[in-house]
């Protein structure tokens, strides 16, 4: 059976994409941020996962408010990238894994997660930037991907506890996939930030540090928050931490930390990366 080797979580701030494209990794502003990924890259280089299940939130590229699923699973042979409206580069498509996608979909529905199913899906920076951070030498990388979109645009958002449970269900689905492939689950977004309103620029380092700890040792603690409590504590867009929580949910074994890094600010955001191994 397939095996989840770990979970990765990363901010997906749009400006990261341009920093990578413009080779700014060693600039004073960016260096502490990019350096935070190096131990994770070493781990990935050693482990060489075959499949990445990527939990991300669409920002009005693939989904509009006319048809907005709470949870949506990709089942495409490839995932295109498209113009998001403000100048991020468009890349060749990422490789899909439709056979495993349909297994995931069937398993999730059996586990009573009535997700939307997508045979076409365009990826935005929330998928692309973490992929470029974790596989910096090739874009798109050779790894097969399955995107899972979680709604963070339109309230009501799925409850954090539900996202955590979704992750657990993904873990079950992978365990019943009949190959010996290695799977890594990735949650993107966060950490604390707020783009809109008079409270724009809000960052909460204490809360982010609590999240990092809870994701390692006590994810149930984070799962007990409501969506609005997350907004209050982490900022309006800091609620994206639900993708991290979902990724953590997929780890059923003993969990140890490979690495974590945290840096304020990148753009308007507290940027974080977390890598957890599943034993």
């Amino acid at each position: 059976m397939a095996r989840i080797i770990g979970a990765l979580a990363s901010s997906h701030i749009p400006s990261i994409g341009n920093a990578i494209s413009n080779g700014k990794q060693e600039d004073a502003y960016w260096k502490p941020f990019f350096d935070g990924y190096k131990p994770v890259l070493q781990w990935l280089d050693k482990e060489k996962p075959d499949v990445a299940i990527v939990l991300y939130n669409d920002h009005g590229l693939n989904f509009f408010l006319n048809n907005l699923p709470t949870f949506a699973v990709g089942a495409a042979a490839e995932y295109i990238t498209k113009d998001e409206g403000w100048g991020l580069p468009v890349f060749p498509p990422y490789k899909g894994y439709p056979e495993m996608s349909w297994h995931l979909i069937e398993s999730l529905i059996e586990q009573e997660f009535d997700i939307a199913m997508c045979q076409e899906m365009a990826m935005d920076h929330a998928f692309i930037n973490p992929m470029r951070l974790f596989w910096p030498t090739e874009n798109p990388p050779a790894i097969k991907t399955i995107p899972v979109a979680i709604n963070t645009v339109q309230f009501p958002l799925p409850r954090p506890a539900r996202c955590y449970a979704l992750g657990k269900a993904i873990g079950n689905a992978v365990a019943s996939w009949p190959t010996d492939e290695k799977v890594v689950v990735i949650g993107t977004g966060g950490m604390s930030h707020q783009l809109d309103g008079e409270r724009a620029g809000f960052i909460n380092k204490k809360f982010d540090e609590m999240c990092m700890q809870a994701l390692l040792n006590d994810p149930e603690k984070l799962a007990k928050f409501s969506s609005l409590e997350l907004v209050r504590e982490a900022g309006a867009q800091g609620a994206e931490i639900i993708m991290w929580l979902a990724a953590r949910g997929a780890l059923h074994g003993r969990v140890s930390q490979i690495h974590s890094s945290y840096h304020i600010p990148i753009s308007n955001t507290a940027a974080g990366v977390l890598a957890l191994a599943n034993h």
Binding site: G197, R199, L228, A236
Partner: peptide, 27 residues
């Protein structure tokens, strides 16, 4: 088990300087 309807305990109006994009705003 999580307490029932935790969303009810905190209203969007209680988060200062923040606009919650709920159904009313989306319409």
């Amino acid at each position: 088990m999580i307490a029932a309807s935790p969303v009810q305990q905190i209203t969007p109006q209680l988060i200062p300087g923040t606009y919650i994009f709920d159904g009313r705003m989306a319409m």
